[in-house]
Design a protein around this nucleic acid. Structure first.
Length: 570
RNA sequence: UGCCCCUUCGUCUAAAGGUAAGACAACGGCCUUUGGAGCCGUGAAUCGUGGUUCGAUUCCACGAGGGGCAACCA
């Protein structure tokens, strides 16, 4: 194992502390074994990243194993396409599972355990309606009461159970319940349901099997069957731990897994419930599960986020028992931090303003050297960028009446064109309604490459592209999907979709980009100098119609100086 | 209203009875052919009240606040 994956002595989270102690004591008598247990009913998202990094990370750090197990116990909601998405995304994140397993493969084993429970009087077949079961469970403040079927004999229960399995009864006619205590202070323990009848097509089991285990019955026992040592799950399963322990004990497992709960990820301006994400997809609020605005792994991948950036983020936020909400700035920081060190810089003008260099020869073209990386990124490489008499610059980089701290182009002012020449604005051309439509500038031939050999200073450096050589591009500027930090916290009767951000996607159809990108494969990541990080869209970009997605903006300290809104963009 | 869990800078996470630390964010400066990056610096927290102790963020009690649980979902 490489030393850099070894658990560091300091700053271990409470789960790693526990695992380290268990390893030292050889508590389980087997290697550390964890699992990532998604239900295949949706695409995995940034919240799953936290869990994946935790489970696979711990297995790697302690020389153990981590399984990928699909908790596929509900035929109504699950689909093979989600299995495929989950596998692809976990691999893309950089993890390899030791075994690929399915709870649906344990249905027979689970059934055997169910028969055993019945024979020992620990479980019974209940034939109340769903409504009756709910009513007789009581409430948080009042105890439940036993239903009329609770005292059926083991023989009677066994007969019924076998006939349930044989498919003799319709959905909902009977359920198998653990016989524990209808007045238990923990609601979960009030005779929890174990098996229910579902005459439905399961994506793996087809229609041959009709007895589906519920989460509580399937999860802990699946863990135990697989020899899991540390079963890590989110806080809302804390109360379920009682039934987890009860079942693995009743099933007779030696040194069963131990469940430990941690706080799930909550991210500002983001929704992470699969139900809500599905709704966004179904109602076409987004283009699909992989819409770059989605917090799904596939959406973030299409947006240009890297696996390393995601992993660094997951490590940075840590793991604890306190429910916690992370600021978007934290996420963006780790994404930028990773991109900064790896992607080439190119020049693209999103909102073009024409510049004519009046002292530059009409048909001359200069090929300028431009490094792909700034001085402080330890990567090398460069390309040639064509320079000519007519250029595009960013409209925001010119102001006719600039305020005090504006360092860019203005009438009479000199700026540096990145990797090009110093230019000075001599004339401002306007249309009939007074809009600036073109600038006339002069360039200084002695400043080729951007160096003033006489020691002259300019305050600003701006990006540009040669008008004649520029490629047209569509640029998609993505911003946060919601306008409020906690879109889940809507008033009673309100839909969370009411806080969707109408400007979460701004399409810029007429961007101009330097020609060097034509040779790069679709899906190449760049920094557009002074603008942000972008990626060629893997779905819609074509050589004759380039499309770039903004991954994240650069930090924009000018936006703060200027006042006004900060540079947007998750 | 019953049971359970949680509470440390604005945010996230450390400190296992002994100087409250780091990251993100903020602010100031330096540097800069990206108003990027980097570097340096500043401000910023133990929910409250008691108790145990030489000493409490840590242990205990009570209170307050937040969260979870009453699906044939997971």
């Amino acid at each position: 194992m490489p030393s850099d994956t070894a658990p560091s002595a300091a700053r271990k989270d409470f789960i790693r502390e526990m695992v380290a102690e268990d390893v030292a004591a050889n508590r389980f008598g087997r290697p550390v074994t964890t699992r990532f247990p998604p239900e295949p009913n949706g695409f995995p998202h940034i919240g799953h990243v936290k869990s994946v990094c935790l489970n696979f990370g711990i297995a790697r750090e302690y020389g153990g194993r981590c399984n990928l197990r699909f908790d596929d116990t509900n035929p109504f909601t699950e689909d093979i396409k989600y299995v495929e998405a989950i596998k692809r995304d976990v691999e893309w994140l950089g993890f390899t599972w030791d075994s690929e397993l399915y709870a649906s493969d344990y249905f027979e084993k689970l059934y055997e355990i169910a028969e055993d429970l019945v024979k020992r009087g620990k479980a019974y077949v209940d034939s109340q309606t769903e409504e009756e079961i709910r009513v007789n469970r009581g409430t948080v403040t009042t105890p439940g009461s036993p239903g009329p079927y609770r005292d059926r004999t083991p023989d009677e229960n066994l007969d019924l159970l076998r006939r349930m399995k044989a498919g003799e009864f319709p959905d909902g006619a009977h359920v198998l319940r653990a016989k524990i205590d209808l007045a238990h202070p923990n609601m979960i323990m009030r005779d929890p349901l174990l098996l229910r009848i579902r005459h439905a097509a399961h994506y793996r089991r087809g229609t041959a099997w009709c007895l589906y285990p519920l989460y509580d019955f399937a999860h802990g026992l699946s863990d135990a069957i697989e020899g899991i040592t540390h079963s890590l799950c989110t806080l809302e399963f804390k109360d379920n731990r009682d039934i987890y322990d009860w079942l693995v004990h009743e099933a007779g497992f030696e040194r069963p897994p131990e469940q430990t709960e941690f706080a799930r990820l909550e991210l500002d301006y983001t929704v992470l419930s699969k139900r809500k994400l599905l709704k966004l997809v179904n109602e076409r609020r987004v283009s699909g599960w992989d819409d770059p605005r989605m917090p799904t792994i596939s959406g973030m991948r299409r947006r240009g986020v890297t696996p390393e950036g995601l992993r660094n983020f997951a490590e940075a936020i840590g793991v604890a028992r306190k429910p916690a909400r992370t600021e978007l700035a934290t996420f963006e920081h780790y994404i930028r931090d990773d991109l900064n060190m790896r992607v080439p810089r190119v020049m693209a003008v999103l909102n073009p303003l024409k510049v004519v260099l009046t002292n530059y020869p009409e048909n001359q073209v200069d090929e300028l050297d431009a490094s792909y990386y700034p001085h402080d990124v330890p990567l090398t490489g460069s390309r040639k960028v064509p320079f000519s008499r007519e250029l595009w610059i960013e409209r925001d980089d010119f102001m006719e009446n600039p305020p005090k701290k504006f360092f860019r182009l203005a009438p009479g002012r000199e700026v540096r064109l990145r990797y090009g020449y110093f230019i000075t604005c001599t004339d401002v051309i306007k249309d009939a309604s007074g809009n600036v439509v073109e600038l006339r500038c002069t360039y200084d031939p002695a400043t080729r490459g951007g160096d003033a050999h006489d020691g002259r200073k300019v305050q600003g450096t701006i990006h540009w592209v040669s008008a004649r050589h520029a490629l047209d591009a569509e640029v998609r500027l993505y911003d946060k999907l919601f306008t409020v930090p906690d879109p889940d916290a809507v008033d009673e009767g309100q839909e969370f979709t009411g806080t969707l951000n109408p400007d979460s996607l701004v399409v810029v159809p007429g961007a101009k980009i330097e020609p060097s990108v034509a040779k790069d494969p679709i899906g190449t990541r760049y920094q557009f100098e002074r603008t942000g990080y972008f990626i060629g869209d893997t779905v819609d970009s074509r050589p004759d119609h380039l499309v770039f997605n903004r991954t994240v903006t650069l930090r924009d300290s000018w936006a703060k100086v200027k006042g006004g809104g900060a540079g947007g963009g998750q």
